[in-house]
Amino acid sequence: MPSDTSKAVIPIQVIDEPQAHEKRHVHEVYDQIASHFSSTRYKPWPVVANFLQSIPTGWVGLDSGTGNGKYLPLPANRSGETWTIGLDRSQNLLRIAMNANYGDTNCIREVVLGDAIETCWRVSAFDYAISIATIHHFSTKERRERAVQSLLQTLSPSHGRALIYVWAIEQDALSKRSIPISEQSSPGHGEDVFVPWVLSKQQDKSASDSAPERRVHHRYYHMFEKGELRDLICGAAHGMGLTVGSPREGLGPVADGMRQKIRGLEIVEDSWERSNYYIELRLWEVEAPDS
């Protein structure tokens, strides 16, 4: 492939109001590139597939930011034993997600048009949730934290499990992307960038005859740095009154012998893989002992 400057990642500063910024540089872009984007995103990531494989029969889950729905049919060898419901902000991607399958079944998927930062579910409705390459599209730390809290609120406090993936500044050696660090950036806060998506006239279903041969769409990303996802999740948990750690650590002294439930969140995996950071977590609930 010839070197192509139109594909270079561009460091930016978010100066617009966050919702307006996300509307223009996330929602509208995905609606326009939906079918081309989907044709390049068909392979499930093994860590996500393994997580879904580990979900017990009878559980119901949420895929928050489902995109083209490629995780909805998994695990393929246990079809129908669990149900994952897909939520996304892009109507055009959901139309694709509705029919997501790996060739073996003609099953119709459950999809909902909604925003990952809002909680359009009854509290504790889900047994598990995945958020794959979604939270990095929110343009302030407060909004990313709220998105994590929305996810946690939809989960069962006693057994809910979740897997969260975001893009990392630290890119894989095989990745064609390198992430420029802007002069304004400060350590611990990641990096705001535009990642271009080049759409040729043939790939763009909405293009008119007079449209230019190709258009470059700039997608907004907040690229995470090492430790930032963990900090975000811990901050979100603390904001909800959750203890971070294993259930044993939650059994601290209890005031006045009141019987009460202590709720917590345990991070069971915190890793980097192929240009992404990911965290797997479990929620727990224990009855505090009488003191």
């Binding site: 119901v60 149900w83 419901i85 509705m98 119709i108 998927r109 459950e110 999809v111 909902v112 809002e118 909680t119 359009c120 579910w121 009854r122 509290v123 409705a125 889900f126």
Partner: peptide
């Protein structure tokens, strides 16, 4: 799609 499995989980969030 919306089926009753999903409807049983959805709630108003205004």
């Amino acid at each position: 799609m919306v089926r009753l499995i999903t409807h049983n989980l959805l709630a108003c969030h205004v």
